[in-house]
Computed example of a mutant assay.
Amino acid sequence: MSAPRNLRAGLIGLGAMGRNHARVLAGLDGVDLVGIVDPAGDTTGTLRAPVVPELTDLLALGIDYAVVACPTGLHEQIGLELAANGVSALIEKPLAPSVEAAHRLVEAFESRGLVAGVGHIERYNPALQSLRSRLAAGELGEVFQVVTRRQGPFPHRIADVGVVMDLATHDIDLTAWVTGQEYTSVAAHTVSRSGRPHEDMVAVVGKLADGTMVNHLVNWLSPLKERTTVVTGDRGCFVANTLTADLTFYANAAIDTEWEALRNFRGVAEGDMIRYAIPKREPLLVEHERFRDAVEGKESDIVTLRQGLRTVEAAGAVLESAARGEAVAIPLPSSD
């Protein structure tokens, strides 16, 4: 009996993220990287696959799936062409620059029964994976609040979207994922201080379906690079640093008081602190392994297009709230 053949993969886009995808795909078990699309070609001469100028050239090589790492504004056009040709796709986040475009991509791939996912890489960060499983096990008790901070210098590779669609979609997706809850409302304020047409700083206050409060602070204007997620609940708080993939738990300690007037106040004091030892595999490699398995028909945990659509809807509501100067409700997804 002959061994199963490797999957034939293609890559579209050789920017900073595209080169990381190329590196991982080139060494991924069970996959052959057979071609890359980029109009500029291979500027380094180090790639282990031919670089072609157009998507039609890549399709002519015969591929089972493609990784879409081109600018966000091209996701819809590229994705629809891949779906029309029966090619599965892992599309970098955000899925699309608008809710309408995201809907069209969902329909294109679902109607053809193709495997498709979104590259929300934070889901594969070891600290957040551990955090999610601990929340699901009830280690924090009732969850009160999720706070994220994501800031750093402006990435010159980004030209077609602002900080909400590019960076804040990380936080929107990871918050819904680690809590297992949908966003129901957001209120946001944005500013642009870098002279670009898009916003480069956003502050968001939101609410999840179970009443959990969320806060996101995201910007491209700080020399300090920060990626933290803090989840506060009944028994303490978790702090995930996704730059270092560290997860720390700060436990609540009870406050005893003999002052009658304060007896009913449920206060807390500093308790034990635990920093967990977590196996740390590269998130991008794990993401590719999961998607490869899904294309092969195996049970696999990928970020579906509908989940990616939900994140785009929440990000769109953030931009709408900032433009209108008021909170915006986000309808829960239909159950069909």
Rank of each mutant, 00 (worst) to 15 (best):
A3F: 12
R5P: 03
N6P: 08
N6Y: 13
L7D: 07
R8M: 01
A9R: 06
A9I: 05
L11W: 09
L14D: 07
R19V: 11
H21A: 11
H21D: 03
R23C: 07
L25T: 07
D29L: 02
D32M: 05
V34A: 09
G45R: 03
G45F: 04
L47E: 01
P50S: 05
V52N: 09
V52A: 01
E54N: 02
G62A: 08
D64G: 05
A69Y: 08
A69F: 08
T72E: 13
L74Q: 15
H75N: 15
E76F: 10
Q77K: 14
L82I: 13
A84C: 09
N85F: 08
V87D: 03
V87G: 07
A89R: 10
A89G: 13
A89F: 15
L90C: 07
P94V: 14
A102Y: 07
A102D: 07
H103A: 02
L105H: 13
S111D: 09
G113V: 08
V115S: 13
V115M: 14
V118P: 11
G119W: 04
R123I: 05
Y124I: 00
P126T: 15
S130V: 09
R134I: 01
L135F: 01
A137I: 00
A137V: 02
E142N: 05
V143K: 00
F144N: 01
T148N: 13
R149D: 12
R149A: 12
I158L: 11
V163I: 15
A168Q: 14
A168S: 14
T175M: 04
A176D: 13
W177M: 13
W177A: 12
V178W: 00
A187L: 11
A188I: 04
T190A: 07
R196C: 02
P197M: 06
H198R: 08
V202Y: 00
A203W: 06
H216T: 05
L217A: 13
W220T: 08
L221G: 03
L221T: 15
L221E: 04
L224W: 03
L224N: 10
K225S: 11
T228S: 04
V230P: 03
V231M: 00
G233M: 00
D234F: 01
G236H: 05
C237R: 06
F238H: 02
V239P: 04
V239I: 05
A240T: 13
T242Q: 01
L243W: 03
A245R: 02
A245V: 11
D246T: 12
T248M: 00
A253D: 13
E258H: 09
E258F: 03
W259A: 12
W259F: 09
E260Q: 10
E260S: 12
R263M: 11
N264R: 02
F265K: 12
R266P: 00
R266A: 12
R266V: 08
G271H: 04
D272A: 14
Y276I: 01
I278F: 14
R281M: 05
P283W: 00
L285I: 12
V286Y: 00
V286S: 05
E287G: 06
H288S: 08
E289Y: 12
G297Q: 09
G297S: 07
S300I: 08
S300G: 03
D301K: 06
I302M: 04
L305H: 11
G308T: 09
R310E: 10
V312P: 11
A314I: 15
G316C: 00
V318K: 02
V318Q: 08
V318N: 06
L319D: 06
S321K: 10
E326Q: 13
E326H: 09
A327G: 04
I330W: 03
I330L: 03
I330Q: 04
L332E: 01
